[in-house]
Simulated scan of single mutants.
Amino acid sequence: MSPGSVADSAGPVAKLPRGRHGLSRDEVVRSQRNRIVVAMAEAMVARGYVGTTVAEILRRAGVSRETFYEQFRSKEDCFTAVYAEAAQLLLNRLADVGAGRSAADEPHRLEHLLGAYLDALAAEPAFARVFLVEVYAAGPDAIRRRVELQSTFADVIACTLDAHTDEQRFACQTLAAAVGAMVTARIAVGDLDGLRALREPLVQLVYRSGQLYGALEREPRE
């Protein structure tokens, strides 16, 4: 499962063909690991982290218990892999926004950033649920990873808005926290339309705030 193709996990997890398939051992191991990661994400949507058992993951992934424990030490270890995949997917989407931006896009780069963030969550609701909702049931290590990702998102916002002072950076941290709370609530209830609808009011909130969040020259769309 490549970071850019997790959307494929919305359907049944593809299994290796029976008999001789011509794949190398590394390819087989990678396929098995990807199927387990996707299966756990899907199982948590249905049952939550606490209610997801290793047996349920095996059933969905179509692998043996032996194969699971060759890849992961425990359910918590498997969750860590799912979380890393979800976080990397999100960070890749945000990085793509900056890479494809032209000079004409500069006044609207906050809109592009928030649009990419919200669209990425809406496109991958199972993985969004992993790091926004189920992470809090997975123990202190998982929560620490969530805090680190939240800090990274705040840094991206600060960079986007040209935040230079301590006050502006703190304002960007509060904005990231508010966005996190609002998107978590919508992911928790499956409100994907409401999730995408957050973009415009959030952008307008920043536009109305002068240089509270940073020194970016803003040009609201008509």
Rank of each mutant, 00 (worst) to 15 (best):
V206W: 01
V179I: 14
G210Q: 12
R101H: 01
A122F: 06
A163I: 15
Y207T: 07
A137K: 10
T184S: 12
V28L: 14
E111H: 11
R35H: 10
L195E: 05
Q32M: 14
I187S: 01
G180T: 11
F170C: 03
P107L: 04
D155N: 14
G190T: 00
E111T: 07
A120P: 04
V189Y: 04
R18N: 14
C78G: 10
P12I: 01
M40Y: 05
D96Q: 01
F72G: 02
D141M: 12
A61W: 02
Q32V: 15
T174Q: 10
M40P: 00
C159K: 10
I36Y: 07
K15G: 09
A215M: 13
R144K: 06
D119V: 07
E85D: 14
P3G: 05
G62V: 09
D119I: 13
C172L: 11
F127S: 02
A46M: 13
D191P: 00
V206Q: 02
K15L: 12
F79N: 01
L89I: 08
L132K: 05
E111R: 15
G19C: 12
Y69R: 02
K75Q: 08
A154I: 08
F170W: 15
E111S: 13
A39S: 03
S5F: 10
H112T: 01
V6Q: 06
A7Q: 14
R73H: 10
R101W: 00
E27P: 14
E219L: 13
R35K: 08
F68P: 12
T184M: 04
E167T: 13
Y49P: 00
A7F: 10
T184W: 07
L195V: 00
A95H: 00
A86L: 02
R146N: 11
E219S: 10
S2T: 08
A39I: 04
A61M: 06
E124V: 14
R208H: 10
F170K: 06
E85T: 14
G4K: 10
A123W: 03
V97A: 00
G62Y: 12
L58A: 06
L212I: 11
Y49R: 01
D26F: 12
R169A: 05
A176I: 05
E76R: 08
G214H: 08
L90A: 05
